[in-house]
Design a protein around this nucleic acid. Structure first.
Lengths: 258, 258
DNA sequence: CGCTTACTTGAACCTTGTCAAGTCATGTGG
DNA sequence: CCACATGACTTGACAAGGTTCAAGTAAGCG
């Protein structure tokens, strides 16, 4: 309760220099078909400033959201004010999908950069699934993909060393990000996170993330400095992360334009 | 690769004395409606002996499964032979649902007790969702519930002490189990796990689970001995687990008979 | 009975957390 | 343009929670 509003204040807007707007033009194919269908049932759009919440733990939820632009993350809170980041959402994600019966969010969603979502109220979903019978199954596939990511995240946090966890997270974000610009062979990206965010996602402290990061850099594997991620040695990164390539491939999911 | 078959051999059948058969008669309402609909499209049933796998990581998957009877768990493997338990599946669960594009399982499913599943081949799903347009959305809700459980599991492993993790797991299993027999006020249940299973689920070693368990017992909170779980002080358990009651409630999900 | 599997317990060790101080880059108001 | 505030990143010393290794006990099965 008390801690509920701490994140917004502790985390200032961080997205100077992300230059999303200019990069935006490069993205091919735009939204996947499913999302275009869903978005047709939106009641409105909403812009969220970096560091602000789209919804918070404990709030009643009466809508789902399609993330049109920007990065967000899902998090859960502990009584002592620490938090756990559950998932990073990239453009094209569907947020706020809860099983029908649950009406209270158990986790929150916060913007990492300035972001834009379409709001699709629950009351429109009945009409949506009547007029587009295939959409239910496709939503199930999307949620299933998120669940699999959560499962991979789980074994990372549960059974791997700090070094492996950090490597895995950077790899995941890199792979998912690059999926949005197919054909591009960039090994460098704008990653709108602080080391503290990485800690919150991997179950480590910011301090320890720092140590791991500079060890990875010393070994010539990755460089992460002031929101810029550079993969120096992709093969070695996969190796250090201890992930089987099949799994890495599965993170990418559908290509948006397909 | 090498480790793939270790679980079956390391984990002998454990379900002597679970007496599922006699308890079975008490369960009210049977399967939820969704599952009855899905099961109508099954190709066949399959019985799995305790300790055997329904499917393994790396296998191609061409079907989904409705767990009719028995307990199972989903797990992922590490190269060194350790594993992480991702989810415990109780009767009524749907297993093997992957996003359409993924054809290779990244995790495995193993029986904790002798178990029975209905096999619904992917090729029947098209017909299913045509003839029952509502089923897609309902499947999405089921997967979404699993995803939320994974998210709670995630913050438990990422941010909580060994004591809290173990307490949370026992609480979760207890709540989900009791949901199957509404009205019953039992504080005792057959829990077909070893301490090692608890360790694999919570990201701890079996040895440390043992220490935690006996400390919880010393404090008069829970007793877990030879596959029998007794909740001595439910309120204190929720307290130790450090979980907000709203979340505990959400684990229960739909009541099967509704 | 003797075997196997699970459960117990102790001691040494190590990875990661905690605390605390300090640096660097950026933004702000005088 | 400088002094100062702020948020993020660095680094070191020390503590602690959990792991590892190893040995031993209890319960159930053939």
């Amino acid at each position: 309760m008390v801690a509920k509003s701490t994140m917004g204040s502790r985390r200032r807007p961080l997205d100077r220099g992300t230059r999303r707007a200019s990069i935006e033009g490069l993205r091919k194919g735009g939204m996947p078909e499913v999302l275009r269908v869903i978005a047709a049932y939106k009641s409105s759009d909403r812009a969220i400033k970096s560091g602000n919440d789209l919804f918070q733990p404990g709030e009643p939820c009466d809508a789902i959201y399609a993330l049109v632009d920007g990065w967000m993350f899902l998090y859960s809170l502990l009584e002592d004010g620490r938090h756990q980041i559950l998932h990073f959402a990239l453009p094209g994600a569907v947020l706020g999908l809860y099983p029908a019966r649950v009406t209270i969010a158990t986790y929150g969603a916060q913007a990492l950069t300035d972001a834009v979502v379409c709001i699709i109220p629950h009351k429109n979903l009945g009409r949506l699934s009547k007029e587009h019978p295939e959409i239910g199954m496709q939503l199930a596939a999307i949620v299933s993909h998120d669940r699999n990511l959560a499962y991979d995240h789980l074994s990372s946090i549960g059974r791997r060393s700090a070094r492996q966890r950090v490597a895995r997270l950077l790899l995941e974000l890199f792979v998912r990000y690059r999926m949005q610009w197919p054909g591009h062979r960039i090994e460098e990206m704008q990653l709108p996170l602080t080391q503290e965010h990485i800690g919150d996602a991997t179950g480590l402290t910011g301090v320890h993330v720092n140590r791991v990061l500079r060890s990875l850099r010393k070994d010539g594997i990755v460089e992460f400095h002031y929101r810029r991620l550079r993969i120096l040695n992709p093969d070695k990164l996969v190796d250090v992360a201890g992930i089987d390539p099949q799994t890495v491939f599965s993170w990418a999911g559908h290509h948006p334009s397909e």
